[in-house]
Computed example of a mutant assay.
Amino acid sequence: MTVLAQQIKSLRKAKNMSQDDLAERLYISRQAISKWETGEATPDLEKLIVLADIFEVSLDVLILGKEEDLEDSSVSEPQALEQPKTFWEFLAEFWWIIFPVLGAVIWFIRSLVEILN
Rank of each mutant, 00 (worst) to 15 (best):
V61E: 14
A80S: 06
V3T: 15
W95E: 09
A5N: 06
S34V: 05
L48V: 04
L51I: 04
K9G: 05
W36V: 07
L22N: 06
D53Y: 10
P43R: 01
S34M: 05
P43G: 01
L116K: 12
A32E: 08
A23K: 05
S111Q: 13
V3R: 05
V75N: 15
L62I: 00
K66E: 13
E68N: 06
L112F: 11
I106H: 09
D21N: 14
D53T: 14
D20R: 11
R110A: 14
K66R: 13
E71T: 14
I54Q: 01
I106V: 15
F108I: 13
K35N: 13
I97D: 05
I98Y: 12
L62S: 00
I106G: 09
W96P: 00
S74N: 06
R25H: 14
V61Q: 14
K66Q: 11
E89W: 01
L116I: 10
A92D: 13
R12F: 03
F87R: 09
K35G: 05
L51A: 02
L81H: 07
E46A: 12
K47G: 01
T86G: 14
E68M: 08
L11V: 01
D69F: 00
L59N: 07
L62A: 00
W95K: 12
L64F: 07
Q7T: 07
E67S: 08
R30E: 10
G103A: 15
W88I: 01
I33D: 02
F108W: 14
L45N: 02
I98N: 03
G103E: 07
V3N: 03
G65N: 07
A52P: 00
T42K: 05
P78E: 15
L64Y: 11
V61W: 03
L70F: 09
R12W: 04
F55Y: 15
F108E: 08
L91V: 05
E114G: 02
K47P: 00
W107A: 15
T38M: 02
D21V: 07
Q79A: 11
S58G: 12
S29M: 06
M17D: 05
A41M: 06
I28T: 12
L91Q: 09
S18K: 12
E46R: 09
L4A: 05
A5H: 04
R25T: 05
V57E: 10
A80R: 10
I49S: 11
F99C: 06
A80F: 03
Q31R: 13
A52E: 00
L81G: 04
Q6L: 09
A52T: 00
K9E: 10
W96A: 06
E93Y: 03
M17I: 04
L112K: 13
L81T: 08
G103R: 03
V75H: 15
M1H: 06
F90L: 06
L116E: 08
K47M: 09
W88T: 03
L64D: 03
S29N: 10
E77D: 15
E37D: 05
F94A: 07
P43S: 02
D21I: 07
L51Y: 02
S111L: 08
N16L: 02
L22I: 04
D20G: 13
V50R: 11
Q19R: 14
V75K: 15
V3P: 00
I8Q: 03
I97V: 08
F90C: 01
L62W: 00
A80M: 04
A80Y: 02
L59H: 11
L91I: 08
V105L: 15
M17V: 04
I54F: 02
I106M: 14
L81R: 14
S111K: 13
